[in-house]
């Protein structure tokens, strides 16, 4: 993260894209976007577009990866070549493998893995267009896709990133704020704030900023969670059963 560059990220009390400090980018969620997958979801958060698909539970190959008492999650996070301003080389790289692993660890506590011993649950996250906050958006999409696939879960995960520009905390980091801001603090919560399942920090936050940053993240997760609830309930309508 480039620091010390003198770029004004706040102008007239607004951020570069005209948002308030605690305002998220326009949000769009859709469920069941892929017919072939068992479950799928797409999320657009401003310019960040992510699609997630879930296959499974299926038989796990190779067999030596099988766990006798629980299912194994296989998470693959990938950025498409045309998702960034400079073309990014396709295929797994250090960053995507790491983010896939982080997302896997964040999803594990909410899935009842012990209901599917020896099985495999495959989660594919494709970033179609990236403008910061891709891992958190991918995680939010993955949890929707899991619900769509009918996998038993403790709850939904919603995740957002909190940042710091010119010593002010901001919600939903985007664009130059990611490249030149003081911190990027991605957080994932279960059911809009019950528990924290992912917390990373790039840059620095001091002790006093920590608590407000967490509160702000919870606010963002709540917005995402409400939208997740809406999209799940509106996609599948249950007819009047007298």
């Amino acid at each position: 993260m480039a620091k010390g560059l003198d770029i004004k990220l706040i102008k007239n009390g607004k951020r570069l894209d005209g948002r308030d400090m605690e305002e998220m980018r326009p949000l769009k969620m859709e469920l069941g976007v892929l017919d072939r997958a068992d479950g799928s979801a797409a999320i657009e958060l401003g310019e960040t577009k992510v699609i997630a698909a879930v296959y499974g539970p299926t038989k796990l190959h190779p067999q030596h990866r099988q766990q006798p008492k629980k299912a194994v999650l296989s998470v693959r996070y990938q950025m498409l070549p045309f998702s960034t301003t400079d073309r990014c080389r396709p295929g797994p790289n250090r960053r995507s493998i790491e983010i896939g692993l982080v997302i896997k660890k964040a999803l594990e506590p909410i899935i009842f893995l012990e209901e599917f011993p020896r099985a495999d649950i495959q989660i594919e996250i494709e970033v179609i267009q990236a403008n910061a906050s891709t891992r958190v958006t991918g995680l939010t999409a993955a949890s929707l896709a899991l619900a769509d696939a009918g996998i038993p879960m403790k709850g939904l995960i919603s995740a957002c990133a909190v940042g710091k520009i010119q010593d002010k905390l901001i919600l939903d980091v985007a664009g130059a704020e990611d490249s030149y801001g003081g911190a990027d603090f991605p957080i994932a919560m279960i059911n809009g704030g019950d528990e924290i399942t992912l917390l990373q920090l790039d840059g620095d936050l001091n002790q006093k900023e920590m608590k407000p940053a967490l509160d702000l993240a919870q606010k963002g997760c709540k917005i995402l969670f409400d939208q997740q609830k809406n999209v799940l309930k509106n996609t599948y309508k249950v007819g009047d059963q007298k």
Binding site: A147, P152, M153, K154, I190, N191, K229, L232, K233, K237
Partner: peptide, 8 residues
Amino acid sequence: DKSLVIPG
């Protein structure tokens, strides 16, 4: 009764 519910 018989309403649509979500995980959690």
